[in-house]
Design a protein around this nucleic acid. Structure first.
Length: 257
DNA sequence: TGGCATGTTGGCGA
DNA sequence: CTCGCCAACATGCC
């Protein structure tokens, strides 16, 4: 359930906790779609040292000193732990020379690990390569609704259901607007809202949960929040199920069709 | 108590 | 080819 800002906060804290530690052992307990064998993972990681831990899209990338990359995707229910315990539903456990254990667990079994993942075709939502003109051209060439566009990881990577609603409210654009019909001025609003909402959220999360490496923080959300009935400006929040997930929006958001 | 929440994949129909 | 929608995955939470 963690989304982009949560994952950014996790990477920040994992970097503090795990950077410089040397891997004694890696155990993969269960993983449905491994892109390498257990032996490959062991060979690539044993005795290696983590140098850098970053978020990329909805994944966490752990890079070792020799350039090996381990990618973790938490999917819906993945949880991370840094401690000395065994965890139920562990997908992978990495043990370091100082006996610290890093575990990714998921009772649903969907969280996954990949070794040296291929470079994705779509840019991260916050990448500097996503310029206003790039974004404008992308929107101009699609007839999908803007919410579906933001959620589709083949366009921009990292935005999930809850933040898509927050971003669209911030830009005052209806989630059901057709991408190619959104006027220039609102496209620019949206472009800035993506950065503003996601960066603000990460700051909020780190402020209230400075050591967070798992779970999610949602209490500051103004629209995608089941405990709220009105937007900050007093408009009634509507709910509609689209594509199997709930969309929260208000009449303050203009519909372009 | 029992829906609801979440992301991704693959398949179907318009 | 493009787009929307659905099921499946499994369980903690209110």
């Amino acid at each position: 359930m963690p989304e982009l800002p949560d994952l950014s906060a996790f990477s920040h804290n994992l970097q503090k906790k795990l950077k410089g530690k040397t891997i004694r052992n890696i155990e993969i307990h269960s993983a449905k779609k491994l892109n390498a064998t257990h032996a490959d993972f062991e060979k690539a990681l044993k005795h290696q040292t983590f140098k850098k831990i970053v978020r990329d899209g909805k994944e966490l990338y752990f890079t070792t000193k020799d350039g090996t990359v381990v990618a973790l995707h938490l999917m819906l229910r993945g949880q991370l732990f840094v401690d000395d315990k065994e965890h139920k539903s562990a997908v992978v456990t990495i043990t370091f020379d100082d006996d610290t254990k890093f575990t990714m667990a998921d009772y649903q079994g969907l969280a996954n690990i990949r070794l040296n993942p291929e470079e994705p075709d779509a840019p991260d939502a916050l990448a500097t390569s996503v310029t206003l003109s790039y974004f404008r051209d992308q929107l101009a060439s699609t007839k999908a609704t803007i919410k579906n566009f933001l959620l589709d990881q083949h366009n921009l990577r990292g935005i999930g259901n809850a933040y898509a609603d927050e971003i669209l409210w911030d830009a005052r654009i209806s989630p059901f607007s057709i991408c190619s019909k959104i006027p220039e001025e609102q496209v620019e609003e949206l472009y800035h809202s993506i950065r503003k909402v996601l960066e603000h959220a990460e700051k909020q999360i780190l402020k209230s949960n400075p050591d967070i490496i798992s779970g999610e923080v949602r209490d500051f959300m103004v629209i995608h929040n089941a405990s709220k009935t009105e937007s900050p400006d007093g408009a009634k929040i509507h709910q509609k199920v689209a594509g199997g997930r709930k969309t929260y929006y208000t009449d303050e958001q203009e519909l372009f069709k």
